[in-house]
């Protein structure tokens, strides 16, 4: 079942098209990654889905409803969230629950659950003004899912954090899939690759790619073999000999050469022969798959050339 349906949404700011007619849908239970460089329109789309701004054109449906009625099904965490610094974490969650019309007993029960899920029990009764960045972000996720929304929108949830904080928040996000559909944006490919099941890439206000994460990585995989040499002289000799038998080599560094896996297999004995005959000492030899970064770069470049 489609939890989020986006139909031809466009947003124009002072004659600049931030979004140029975007359509796609997100299935229930997915952790959906919305990837793109800064300024591509990620925040604009998320704010539209959160009902903070109105699209210039197009509509969207969340859990089958539109406009104001979507609010109760949506949880939202802004890129730079502002929570009342004079409240405690517990008070903020309680306040949020009341605004969604939850019952008092349910609110306390849910707060308990969320404090432990997000690992902020210790900070619960401290003023938010004194929270660290990582704590704020975890509280941010807690307030977003307080009312058990069908859809949770997270705008760059981990981007501003240090590596440890990022890992914690991403682990937390991947745990959310049991109770809500997650729609998260990021410009950090690694984060999306780590937690998302499905990904859409946005550039200049248009979707350039939308695919299942596994399929995407497989279909774009151009398996490569990386050879690392002990000495740079061996590496350059290797390059010369490979070109002599017309195998394309790309030089990654002074001591690292990369060739296509197909070439490696078809000319295996010849390559090995050269290595042995000329005494080219290898440090390591690895097979590698394409990363989301390669795919991202590929698509962005393609657009820029077009």
């Amino acid at each position: 079942m489609a939890m989020i349906e986006i139909v031809n949404i466009a947003k124009r700011y002072h004659a600049v098209d931030a979004l140029k007619g975007i359509s796609f849908s997100v299935q229930q239970g997915t952790v959906f990654g919305f990837l793109g460089p800064n300024g591509a329109g990620k925040t604009t789309l998320i704010r539209i889905l959160a009902n903070l701004i109105a699209p210039t054109f197009g509509t969207f449906r969340i859990h089958g409803v539109t406009r104001e009625s979507t609010k109760k099904h949506v949880g939202y965490l802004a890129q730079q969230p502002g929570f009342y610094p004079w409240m405690t974490g517990r008070e903020l969650l309680r306040f949020s629950g009341k605004l969604y019309g939850m019952g008092a007993g349910d609110i306390e029960q849910r707060i308990k659950e969320l404090l432990s899920l997000c690992g902020i029990e210790q900070a619960a009764d401290r003023r938010i003004g004194g929270y660290s960045g990582g704590m704020l972000q975890r509280l941010g996720i807690a307030q977003a899912i307080m009312h058990r929304p069908k859809v949770t929108l997270l705008d760059e949830p981990a981007s501003a954090l240090d590596p440890v904080g990022r890992k914690d928040v991403l682990t937390l996000i991947s745990r959310l899939r049991e109770e809500t559909t997650v729609f998260m944006s990021s410009h950090i490919l690694e984060d999306i690759q780590r937690v998302c099941d499905e990904v859409a890439i946005i550039a200049d206000g248009s979707i350039v790619l939308h695919e299942d994460m596994d399929k995407l990585l497989k279909s774009h995989a151009k398996p490569l073999v990386r050879l690392e040499f002990e000495h740079s002289s061996s590496a350059s000799k290797f390059q010369v000999h490979m070109e002599a038998i017309s195998i394309r080599v790309s030089k990654e560094s002074e001591v690292q050469m990369v060739i296509a896996e197909t070439d490696f297999h078809s000319q295996y004995s010849q390559i090995m022969g050269i290595l042995v005959d000329y005494n080219l000492l290898l440090k390591s030899i690895n097979k590698e798959n394409a990363t989301l970064e390669d795919i991202f770069m590929h698509h962005i470049k393609e657009r820029n050339h077009a």
């Binding site: 903070l52 949506v74 939202y76 502002g82 307030q143």
Partner: peptide
Amino acid sequence: GEKSDGSLQFLLVRPV
């Protein structure tokens, strides 16, 4: 003040 520190958005995404 709530606009500039972002806390107004906290209210606006809720059914308020």
